[in-house]
């Protein structure tokens, strides 16, 4: 999604779970210096092509557009904890270690 200044209103999400946008910032028609993006104190993440890629709130996105940058939005994610399905279970964590060291005599109590 490429955002121009005239259509800059982005959904902000809810107060509890605000949206973050993953976007790349480009010089735009006003040829803004991309080096100045650093001055905006945004959350920059690596980009495989060397572009300026950021994670920004709706307000920050609007600020970039107001400043004359062209912004390409690549996705949006709601502020939320890690998917619990990606978190290891406590028992599983210990079982993993027990399996890894199986057969190696423990020295505890020695």
């Amino acid at each position: 999604m490429r955002m121009a200044r005239t259509s800059r209103k982005a959904p902000a999400g809810t107060d509890d779970h605000p949206l973050r946008f993953e976007a790349t910032v480009h010089a735009g028609p006003r040829a803004r210096a991309l080096a100045r993006v650093a001055d905006l104190d945004l959350d920059r993440v690596p980009d495989p092509r060397g572009d300026v890629r950021v994670l920004v709130s709706a307000d920050e996105l609007a600020r970039l557009l107001d400043d004359g940058y062209e912004v390409h939005v690549h996705g949006a994610l709601r502020q939320a904890p890690l998917d619990p399905g990606l978190v290891l279970d406590d028992d599983e964590a210990v079982r993993w270690l027990e399996e890894m060291v199986e057969g190696i005599p423990r020295e505890e109590g020695s």
Binding site: L82, L86, V87, L88, D90, A93, V94, L97, V101, E107
Partner: peptide
């Protein structure tokens, strides 16, 4: 899958308890 802070701490503790010579 990712470990919680408590799980990471627990693994370190178990390793030091079970294999203190290492």
């Amino acid at each position: 899958m990712y470990r919680t802070v408590a799980q990471l701490d627990s693994l370190g503790n178990l390793l030091a308890t079970w294999f203190p010579s290492y």
